[in-house]
């Protein structure tokens, strides 16, 4: 009996670039209170919102296989921005975890 203990499981969420913007706001990065970037906003009409699987509160561990661990906020934001900009891929794979 009792409630199940939530185990944070990392999942890959694929966001297809089907809008002009990605449409997420992130906070955090190395040397801040939030050492890995956390999604704080998802804007309607952006690719992230259209994908339907990213949620506010999720922490981003990797972007297209690139680890965000140890990266400061600006670096992490730059990696995500570049992943959205590049025409080499029509999608971004986010490895995210919902903190327990």
């Amino acid at each position: 009996t009792g409630s199940p203990v939530p185990v944070p499981t990392a999942t890959v969420v694929r966001v297809v670039k089907n809008a002009n913007t990605l449409g997420i706001a992130i906070e955090g990065g190395a040397n801040t209170r939030q050492p890995l970037p956390r999604i704080v906003t998802i804007q309607k009409g952006g690719s992230a919102h259209n994908c339907g699987q990213l949620k506010v509160g999720q922490v981003i561990l990797e972007v297209n296989g690139i680890s965000l661990r140890g990266r400061e906020h600006k670096d992490a934001a730059w990696i995500i921005a570049e992943a959205f900009k590049t025409k080499e891929k029509d999608h971004i794979d986010f490895l995210v975890v919902e903190p327990g």
Binding site: L22, T32, Q34
Partner: peptide, 15 residues
């Protein structure tokens, strides 16, 4: 005196 590790809050970036 207890030493606390206080880290600054992060800025927020819209992507």
């Amino acid at each position: 005196r207890e030493k606390r590790l206080t880290l600054p809050p992060s800025e927020i970036t819209l992507l």
